[in-house]
Design a protein around this nucleic acid. Sequence first.
DNA 1: ACATTGTTGCAACCCAGTTGCATTAATTTT
DNA 2: AAAATTAATGCAACTGGGTTGCAACAATGT
Lengths: 126, 126
Amino acid sequence: MGVVRKTKHLEQVLRVFRQSSDPLSARMLLDALPNEVNKSTVYRMLDKLEDDGVIHSFMTLEHIRFYALCKGCSSGQRVDSHAHFQCTSCKRVSCFSDEIVLPIPEKARITSVQVLFTGQCQSCLS
Amino acid sequence: MGVVRKTKHLEQVLRVFRQSSDPLSARMLLDALPNEVNKSTVYRMLDKLEDDGVIHSFMTLEHIRFYALCKGCSSGQRVDSHAHFQCTSCKRVSCFSDEIVLPIPEKARITSVQVLFTGQCQSCLS
DNA sequence: ACATTGTTGCAACCCAGTTGCATTAATTTT
DNA sequence: AAAATTAATGCAACTGGGTTGCAACAATGT
């Protein structure tokens, strides 16, 4: 189905994503939006944007879903092995710039791969 | 901290894991245990087993945590890039037999990598 | 057998995410 | 431009995975 109408909220959501270098959770997005938006609305927008291939999502080990813009993902053949990283100390989530090359197994029809590295980031190490 | 005492529940949990070829969620484990066990107890056992490096966990896209025995993982230097697969149709989760070789990024001290393939499994394709 | 202390069960709780429904607002039709 | 259509929104209640504090219980050391 996906997004059909251009609403103010939608524009604001996209602006927040564009301005953020890191992936965002629904909560973070909710806090970042300029005016009050209901959380159901935010979840619904995120769902639709993901359906449309505008953003993609992945789960962190704290069972929180994070969303990020699909920059390179051609929404047709999407095996975007784009990887993410979460620092176990500060919990911050970020994207890995390098594309990860993964061997796609034969056994199944793979449509996506999510890769999450965990460990300590630079600033938490020092 | 980890597990200290050998209780009946603990033995049963380990038996269930050994008998299962697939990773298990807390709920599935709860259902598979022969006698009634409180869910808090199960979650606590899982936490401790993971601390001890006996099992490892990962999140599915439905934000459910799955656990599996660490077969090859030496609990010392553990960058176990063991991959999992979830079928988007039947939701079943399984382990990939092939070890995935991943380039470990320099920027951070990586301690673990989780890889989750999603798509359709053999039986759902036919 | 007893003391110690890790483990369990219980109930209440937290929080991410969902749902049904009435209302509002973006688009289309006239 | 106003009316009709229908997607998007807000609200409140709900679901379900996972956690927590505490009293009761049971595995281990002496």
